[in-house]
Nucleic acid binder design. Structure first.
Lengths: 173, 173
DNA sequence: GATAATTGTTATGGACCATATCAAATATCG
DNA sequence: CGATATTTGATATGGTCCATAACAATTATC
């Protein structure tokens, strides 16, 4: 069930540009049989997730946003005035690990920590103007380059069905 | 798009045993709005993947097999006589990282490295008798406790549709 | 007002992933 | 044949992400 991010370099040798794939060329070392692996939920889930994240990063290259950072900006925009603990726990990020993430976003002036007047322990999170602008551009990129790709691949109906099923698995499994 | 493995402890406070959930009890700190996040492919994919892996580990607790180890055993069983490079690259595992994995499986007598007579550089991989037995038990556990759960949740048809779509995403996205 | 709990933070360790490098064995090619 | 390049398994190492313990400042609780 393990899959890493590096595309297998071995495939570069065989199917390059316009070469009509010779079938009985060299010994060729026949491809392995995946067998039951290709129907293992966890295996195919992980592979799909890696591919999707990989594509997401490419789409966001110009904005330099990771999936995690994008999710933080989205959530802060939707829920302004919440503190670090609330945002982090909603995303399943542990508070200690959230600190460095925010340091990054804040250093890039996308997000700001504001001392709460009610509870001077907590930091209220808000998007800066730049943060809002970047997020707006990010959304457009995701919609046009990322989610649209899923539509092309599966069709609108199947895309929605897939996301609905994944949500169900995520929440009720 | 980030999700960790720890279940949010905060939910333990509210819905415990048989307590009828009071709606207007204490201040309650209203739950955050996920907004567009809940329809982000990457977000829901990652959450689902974590839940599935978590459940897999619980099911395999008695056999002490991780998803990655299970995939290795499955692939070696299906393709006996292949070397480390072939098995690893098929699973998307980099050769350096595969060494420790095999050390582990070999130390538990589940898998064996055999020097190839054709090419004395490579190690042929095979399952030991114990490895075959453990894998057989693992398959039964996965089928009865893991995959069956997906059937209960989605139904047979949807389960197959989900896996088919994930395969498509994994291969063609 | 003493004690407990919460918030953000630091330090730290583990798991996983990726790259460079190496010795041994093999392949390639002059 | 023999020099050079490639392949295989392995080691070392660094990065990222995840998880836990602990701490100071602040607030809640009694």
């Amino acid at each position: 069930m393990t899959v890493s991010k590096t595309a297998e370099k071995s495939s570069e040798k065989s199917g390059e540009a316009g070469k009509g794939r010779k079938d009985a060329g060299e010994p060729q070392a026949e491809a392995l049989q995946l067998g039951e692996l290709s129907e293992q939920l966890g295996y195919v889930l992980k592979r799909a997730q890696l591919k999707v994240f990989e594509n997401f990063l490419r789409c966001m290259a110009s904005l330099q946003l990771t999936p995690a950072q994008f999710s933080v900006l989205l959530l802060v925009e939707k829920n302004p005035g919440r503190n670090q603990t609330e945002i982090a726990s909603t995303l399943g990020i542990l508070r200690p690990n959230f600190v460095a993430m925010l340091d990054n976003l804040e250093s890039r002036d996308l997000c700001a920590r504001i001392r709460s007047t009610n509870d001077r322990r907590s930091h209220i999170l808000v998007l800066t103007d730049k943060g809002k602008a970047v997020l707006a551009r990010a959304k457009k990129l995701v919609a046009s380059k990322h989610e649209a790709r899923l539509n092309d691949l599966l069709g609108q109906a199947n895309r929605e069905a897939l996301i609905a099923m994944l949500s169900k698995v995520a929440n009720e499994f």
